[in-house]
Design a protein around this nucleic acid. Sequence first.
RNA 1: CGGGGUGUAGUGUAACGGUAGCACGAGUCCUUCGGGAGGAUUUAGUUGGAGUUCGAAUCUCCACACCCCGACCA
Length: 396
Amino acid sequence: MLQSKLFCKTKREAPREVEAASHKFLIRGDFVEQSFAGVYRFLPLGVMVLRKIENIIRQKMFELGAQEVILPALQNKSLWLETGRWDKIDPPLFKFKDRHEREIALGSTHEEEITDSFRHRVELPVALFQIQTKFRNEMRSTGGLLRAREFLMKDLYSFHSDEGGLKDFYEKVKKTYFDIFKTCGLKALCVEADSGTIGGSISNEFMIISAAGEDRILICDQCGFAANVEKSGKVAKCPKCQSILRQESAVEIGHIFSLGEKYSQAMSLPGAVFMGCYGIGLPRLMATIVEKNRDERGIIWPETVAPFQVHLLSLGQNEKSEKLYQDLQKQGVEVLYDDRVNKTAGEKFAEADLLGIPTRMVVSAKTLEKDSVEIKKRNEKEVKLVGLAKMKKYVK
RNA sequence: CGGGGUGUAGUGUAACGGUAGCACGAGUCCUUCGGGAGGAUUUAGUUGGAGUUCGAAUCUCCACACCCCGACCA
């Protein structure tokens, strides 16, 4: 990708009202922009990151044996009446009427839709997931992507013939979630949580410790117990081993629920069907990755989710850098090539640091004296010179 | 929804009730080219409505928008 043609234009300053560090960098890097309160436009760079995250998750879902579906955002009132959530769910549904005066909701979650679909296909067990836009009529949105009113979510639903089957799968999902977050460069903590209006008996949240987080969690350093303050109350001692608990702020990036028969009974499924549902908010995950992977200059994307692998900067040496750009592309390396001639070196460096692509390459008069290219990792200080000839088989 | 705050150009920021200015960005030209360079030139703004006043970005009221705390959530 030629940077001169890139739609995204970085900003030196973030809007005054923006507070969260992730929000600042994502706005300044032009990954996303706000449309209105709690609603964001994802621009090309932002979409690239989102797709990377999406594919990591999708891959792990397939490994779990789940099949992909796409359920509608427009949902009929009647299904929601069956579970009694039309008026009760919190945050409330976005509701409107179509031209025939029929009442419709924009889906905030999909238990009703998936259970309805399952109704006449009673092969057990089965797991289905989707990566789809959710609409939530939140009281207020916060921290940029950390809580939006419209956002992309991966939601997985599982159906089992007995509680044991559900329990086994639930534990498998837990492992998979740890795996997903680790791949995204995050160290997650699984805590006991309240199940809210989704319901069910057991639920766990996946937390990333961060000052930007809205949740408060209690951690026992002795036995590993961890719980959301919402669930456990503000107790000082571990309920399992009586040790003193440590309190931290955290971002909830995933939430899993063991629903039991709540939906299958409410929607009158034949026979015993035990369900689980499992969610990950993608933009929130993306923002959290930024919260945990940055310095004062900008983002430091983990390789796995970076929009590009290499950021190639040309400092007034476009012939040689153009050649290197072509070579790298031929090798299948994802390169953002800063081919702009009207930008100073300082500007290019500053932007590269802000955008946070893992590997920076510079071609300049200085490097060409030695017939080489300068390579620097975004998360390291050292630079090294590598002969241009060697770049014919560049491997990161 | 309750409480608090803020609305000036794409972004940031000035202007006592008295000429809306500056910087960055964007456009054009020149000189630059290893950490957001310099010069010339162009571009673009007081959220909307009512009121007070000779005169309102500034004071008052209403609306709208956005942000923060509460609450809720992935």
